[in-house]
Design a protein around this nucleic acid. Structure first.
Length: 602
DNA sequence: GAATCGACTTGTTGGCATACAC
DNA sequence: GTGTATGCCAACAAGTCGATTC
């Protein structure tokens, strides 16, 4: 038996365990239904599938593509003479290229970045490349550079922008709008589609995330000569700015991008692509969730299979994590030191035969994507634990935990279990199934709309926690929480006052029995009701905000949760879709809003 | 079969417009 | 009308994963 195969079996097993032990029972109880309105929707699915099949049999993504090319960053405007740079206490006029790079640094003076050694070192090295030889010989020590005047100038500029009159602001807005109208759309196969990012990234200093070894390096200005344009032959080709040329114009309909260039920091390619609301992105998204639904159908089989495998082979690598990303290898020294499942090292796990009242606990502690810390303690089966122990033996902290396993081997194995299955499908599947299950569990039919929305957010939160989507508590969190609390107290006072008034009105009515006093009672009763509702809303808001302190919901909502689950939930409970999705999200998920009925099942 | 490349998705952040409180 | 908190969105970094190259 292929030893790699074994690694993967164990991997998938623990994946399940890690994510949510309750899944097993839930899934076994699950009866899969393709759609609530089988006939109608099936036809729709078939038609879409047919269309796709028709379009993509040759692997092409479009037949016709026309656009106007990217918008370049505005050229550098030299500083006015009164704004000076000082070296070693003396003013010094810089050449335009050196000055431009200096302004990048000066704009960041308030940021912690500029105090970091690596950042300063990288910046200085790249800055010197832009200097004239004279400047180079003079400016030899970054610590002797004084950018404060430049910094103040830019602050004043941004202040002035804020102080602009309404008319001026309106003018800028209109100019912007014009640019969007001209460059922000393309024609792809008879459809006018919005482009996601039609502006070329302006030059600046690279700020990586976490401890990035390249932070501070100069991101150079992109010129038309760096740009590859992609469009169809029979379209009106975009014109480069006067006096310039594109690097290349190609007609590759096997890809979806409109323009690309190679950035100079990592040497990777950047693309101009369509907005998420576009047909091409929407279909891909839909397809992603369909794959996750297929996994749902066969997850039981996969589980049984790897469990069997696992029982028969004793001394095998135990592989961990599903909520975890796959974790590709990365070049050392090229990026920040972050890991995923396949690249976990010995130093990232600790084993506890007993912890509190649980046995066989594995503790994970490592930096994941974007250098976000993943910390979790997970009880595992004894056998898994023992194997992990074996695994750690005779290894140094910096050794790989799972040698002989990488994402390619893992995904190849997963592919064998189910067509189209990769590690990230598990993430999508688990997120979506959790949302659906949590919504079922948390939604009370008798709740008010705000309470239902709270339940929705709680379900969403459960997913975000599962996926480790953390955020730093907002800087103004405590204050805004306090404000809300004050409002609640005020509302409570208001309520008791209103109740008193109602009481008075009632006794007045009892005494007089006239129409006027009857009306007064009604008015007061309504007032009490209204205030009660307002108070409840505030309280729900406070709970929601408090629970959301360190959790970011956006990422899971946008990338992991089958939108049809949310749409169905809204339809079922009469909650407006705009309470759950904002405008952009509604545009992105238009296909789902269109497709899902109230009894859609993931 | 490892390394690299290319295309595309996922993720966080910060600036800005807008809603809201006063 | 003005100041401030909030949510939205663009920007862009950092992943995943399949294809290609060595």
């Amino acid at each position: 038996m292929n030893p790699n195969h074994c690694h993967c079996c164990i991997y998938v097993l623990i994946v399940d365990k890690l994510i949510n032990p309750r899944f097993t029972q839930f899934i076994s109880a699950f009866v899969y239904r393709f759609e609530c309105k089988p006939k109608k929707v099936k036809v729709e699915h078939d038609r879409k599938a047919q269309k796709r099949k028709h379009e993509y049999t040759d692997g092409s993504k479009w037949r016709f593509l026309e656009h106007k090319g990217p918008v370049f960053a505005p050229p550098y405007e030299p500083l006015p003479d009164k704004v000076r740079f000082y070296y070693d206490g003396k003013p010094m006029k810089l050449s335009a290229p050196a000055e431009e790079v200096a302004t990048f640094f000066s704009k960041m003076l308030d940021h912690e970045y500029t105090t970091k050694d690596i950042f300063r070192k990288n910046f200085f090295k790249d800055w010197r490349k832009e200097m004239t030889s004279e400047e180079k010989s003079k400016i030899t020590d970054l610590n002797k550079c004084d950018f404060t005047e430049m910094n103040e100038y830019f602050k004043a500029q941004s202040e002035a922008r804020k102080q602009m009159s309404k008319e001026e602001k309106q003018k800028i807005k209109e100019e912007n709008e014009r640019l969007v109208q001209e460059y922000g759309f393309c024609i792809m196969d008879n459809h006018k589609e919005r482009i996601g990012n039609f502006r070329i990234e302006p030059p600046g200093l690279f700020r990586g995330r976490g401890d990035h070894p390249k932070m501070g390096m100069l991101k150079r200005r992109i010129r038309p000569e760096d740009i590859i344009i992609n469009c169809s032959k029979d379209s009106k080709h975009p014109k480069p700015p006067p006096g310039t040329k594109w690097k290349e114009v190609r007609h590759d309909n096997k890809v979806t991008w409109l323009a690309s260039w190679t950035e100079n920091i990592q040497g990777s390619i950047k693309y101009i692509m369509l907005n998420p609301s576009s047909r091409i992105k929407g279909e891909k998204d839909w397809q992603k969730y369909e794959t996750a639904r297929r996994l749902k159908k066969c997850v039981d089989r996969i589980r049984t299979q790897y469990r069997d495998d696992w029982k028969s082979k004793e001394m095998r690598i135990r592989k961990t994590a599903l909520a975890l990303r796959a974790g590709n290898e990365k070049e050392e020294g090229e990026t920040a030191d972050t890991v995923g499942c396949c690249s976990l090292r010995v130093e990232h796990v600790k084993l506890y035969p007993k912890m509190d009242d649980q046995e066989y606990v594995v503790e994970f502690d490592f930096l994941g994507k974007d250098s976000i810390r993943y910390y979790n303690k997970i009880p595992v089966e004894k056998r898994v634990f023992k194997n992990l122990q074996l695994f750690l033996e005779n290894k140094q902290p910096e050794d790989d935990l799972f040698d002989r396993l990488n994402t390619s081997i893992l995904n190849k194995h997963l592919q064998e279990l189910m067509d189209g299955l990769t590690a990230k499908v598990f993430r999508t599947y688990n997120a979506s199934i959790t949302l659906q299950q949590q919504l079922k569990e948390l939604t009370c039919p008798d709740d008010s709309i705000p309470a239902k929305i709270l339940s929705y957010n709680r379900a969403n939160r459960a997913v975000a926690i599962l996926c480790n989507h953390q955020r730093a508590p907002p800087k103004t969190f405590e204050k805004s929480m306090q404000n809300l609390q004050t409002k609640i107290e005020e509302k409570q006072n208001q309520l008791s006052a209103a109740r008193k008034q109602l009481k008075v009105a009632k006794s007045d009515h009892k005494a007089s029995h006239d129409d006027k006093s009857k009306k007064a009672v009604e008015v007061k009763r309504k007032a009490v009701q209204r205030i009660e509702e307002q108070l409840m809303k505030l309280q729900v808001q406070a709970t929601d905000r408090e629970e959301n302190k360190q959790i970011a919901l956006g990422t899971s909502k946008l990338n992991y949760l089958d939108p049809r689950i949310s749409v169905a939930w809204c339809k079922k409970w009469g909650v407006g879709i705009e309470k759950i999705y904002n405008k952009t999200q509604r545009e992105k998920f238009a296909w789902a809003i269109d497709m899902a009925e109230k009894d859609y099942e993931f």
